[in-house]
Design a protein around this nucleic acid. Structure first.
Lengths: 247, 247
DNA sequence: CCTCGAATGTGTACGTCGTACACTCTATGT
DNA sequence: ACATAGAGTGTACGACGTACACATTCGAGG
């Protein structure tokens, strides 16, 4: 990544390349990049990979359109953000609004597991992100909160959603990490990953061990995991409860 | 990083190198790596940099001790986690316990801004992390919750703390991004980063703009920022409120 | 229809990263 | 004093992002 050399400014500062007469375009590039990251994870997102997928033999073609990789990431994040529908104005029921918004974001991040990993690598200044943030802020300000409290609550909510998504993508990686056969490996892993497990009679982390066993005992190829959504909703409700007592 | 090739298992699976007779040691390596990351950020954390700092001319010396970079990161994360004191057993007042634990973690992550960026890049299986997790789980289980609820609440809290730390380190990077002179640049930035700002008369994101101005208007070299801690505490309390109504 | 110039794609190459492999050096037990 | 395991070094490879010069392609004016 750009690391440190010259921390790239958001791509929005740079002019959109003029209307293309032939050749590639931002939209196509971003779509391809998203497809790659969707299927291969954020590690698979490589300028070379995107270029190859597009048929271009070298990655250099892309640079005319996206300026650099950080710019491409900016565009991907914004495209993903565009998939969650943000109301124009706060409605009657603030809690319903925010619940819907959070759930929309959550399903978007389930669709794009790379989002949570990449979003912390760029300043959060995309147009759609800004729009959503403005909406949430205005919701709380409309409820009589001052701006700094509104910012706090927005952070709280946003951090929660992204954090859950991050944790989810970690778990997915854990599954990919090795192909399990059965519960034998589970035992091995549970015993190995958590050091100082202690004797069988008195394990050092009994609860943790049960969690790991439950987790690893589940079918990795189970289609849908409603439990995930239930957990998400529980946390969110609990958070909104806490907020609402403070309004 | 290891990217994808062979997702490195946690370093605790590998035997600690036998007691050194001369030369380096894990402790010294990890200490140096943490010092580098503390001062230069997670981007500065390079095997080469660590080796140079240690006086070794090549990074290869390190590999006998830490196996690979992921292993070094595992050790760094665990060392940082060791800095937050986890009680042996849940006490009388669960809320005080968790508040103290969260605040401890938060100050640790303020001390080590790289922590939040690196923690999501490795499985959360370090001994100290496990111990803290076990403590939180047992707190909730002791309150009569079932295990999956306990896991939810733990995630909620942990995700909150790390998320706040992540946001903080993002802001710090934003400061470093360029050396501001005064409010002129601020105006420019505020107008530029948030696209479609709209006319001066009717900005498209009025609240957001105020937030950015407030943020950029503050003194970047202000020593302590108690406001930060106040925000942290607000969110945490609000979260604990939400949890406590569900117990 | 041909040609010219701007818009677009390509090849090559550099610097950085993690790290494998073979090598040399060092300190210790005999 | 010397063999030997334990430790550090040098060199090198492949992947990455991307700068720069070059080749190619298209659309408009003669």
């Amino acid at each position: 990544m750009s690391a440190q050399g010259t921390p790239t400014p958001p791509i929005w500062l740079l002019p959109e390349p003029p209307e293309r007469r032939w050749g590639l375009g931002r939209a196509e590039i971003v779509r391809t990049a998203i497809a790659i990251a969707d299927s291969g994870g954020s590690d698979a997102l490589t300028m070379r990979a995107v270029a190859k997928e597009l048929g271009s033999s070298t990655p250099m073609s892309l640079y005319r359109y996206v300026h650099n990789k950080d710019g491409l990431v900016d565009l991907m994040l914004d495209a993903a953000n565009a998939e969650v529908t943000t109301p124009e104005k706060p409605g009657e029921d603030w809690r319903a609004d925010l619940t819907r918004l959070s759930h929309d974001s959550w399903t978007m991040m389930k669709r794009h597991p790379w989002f949570a990993e990449l979003v912390h690598q760029r300043p959060p200044a995309g147009p759609h992100a800004s729009r959503r943030q403005e909406f949430v802020l205005s919701t709380f300000v409309g409820l009589g909160q001052d701006l700094s409290a509104a910012v706090s609550y927005h952070r709280l909510l946003d951090g929660y959603v992204v954090g859950q998504a991050l944790q989810r993508s970690e778990e997915m990686k854990m599954w990919q990490r090795q192909g399990f056969r059965g519960l034998d490996d589970v035992q091995e892993l549970a015993g190995a990953w958590f050091v100082d497990v202690g004797s069988d009679a008195e394990p050092r982390f009994p609860l943790l061990e049960r969690v790991v066993k439950d987790f690893l005992g589940a079918d990795p190829h189970a289609p849908a995991t409603p439990a995930e959504d239930v957990q998400f909703t529980l946390g969110l409700d609990c958070l909104l409860d806490g907020i609402s007592t403070r309004l």
